[in-house]
């Protein structure tokens, strides 16, 4: 379903990743761990098509998205969703518009139905008219997840989505998000530096060591 091969990333003179390989099957929930600065975000950003690399190939669902470190398909056409550490909800749009952003091509009724379905799933019915700054951190994070899931991406990337939340909320949310992902059966990669979080969340846990991936 997803395969990443020969990914090497060099910033200026420092090599961050070298010959990184990863393959996942449909519906896999994978957790990528490693020390801070080990290149986890860099790997995700390459898969998403945001940054280029020295070398590396990405194949998703049989389509070659990137090759030789260069992207053949732009981020907006990759059908990959991403949840960022600081949520990145658009501050000038209310929750409804935020979630609708990726599915604007649907008819109004279909959009509405999809948004309601997603809000129900994340347990936040009735917040459509609110603005991001009127929600708590945990709520914003769940909206960000709903927004990323709205267009039904083939792959979902989560870059430390829980790390800026407090401990008790973290535990609760990790399980909740896991359930949602299982329900939607979307292939996902979670980046975290917290090993415990990784094992609770994922089916498969990998770790970046010496610039390469080792699967436990």
């Amino acid at each position: 379903m997803l395969s990443v091969n020969h990914l090497s990333i060099v910033y200026q003179t420092t090599q961050v990743l070298s010959e990184f390989d990863l393959s996942l099957a449909t519906g896999d929930i994978f957790a990528l761990t490693g020390d801070s600065g080990s290149g986890k975000s860099s790997a995700l950003r390459f898969i998403a098509g945001l940054d280029e690399a020295q070398s590396g190939r990405v194949i998703l669902d049989g389509k070659q998205l990137s090759n030789n470190g260069v992207h053949n398909i732009a981020p907006e056409l990759r059908e990959i969703g991403m949840v960022f550490q600081d949520y990145a909800l658009f501050p000038h749009m209310n929750i409804k518009k935020n979630i609708a952003f990726g599915i604007h091509y649907l008819s109004n009724n279909k959009q509405k139905a999809r948004i309601e379905e997603l809000l129900l799933m994340i347990g936040l019915e009735g917040v459509e008219k609110k603005y991001p700054h009127q929600l708590s951190g945990g709520e914003q994070q769940r909206v960000a997840l709903a927004r990323a899931l709205a267009p039904s991406p083939k792959l979902l990337l989560l870059d430390e989505p829980f790390s800026s939340l407090d401990k008790s909320l973290q535990e609760q949310l990790v399980l909740q998000v896991r359930d949602i992902l299982k329900k939607t059966n979307v292939t996902s990669i979670l980046v975290t530096h917290d090993k415990r979080e990784a094992t609770i969340f994922a089916d498969k846990v990998g770790m970046i060591e010496n610039k390469q991936l080792t699967i436990n």
Partner: peptide, 10 residues
């Protein structure tokens, strides 16, 4: 990050 999330949303 706003640019990036918007692009990833198509």
């Amino acid at each position: 990050v706003f640019t990036q999330s918007a692009r990833l949303l198509g």
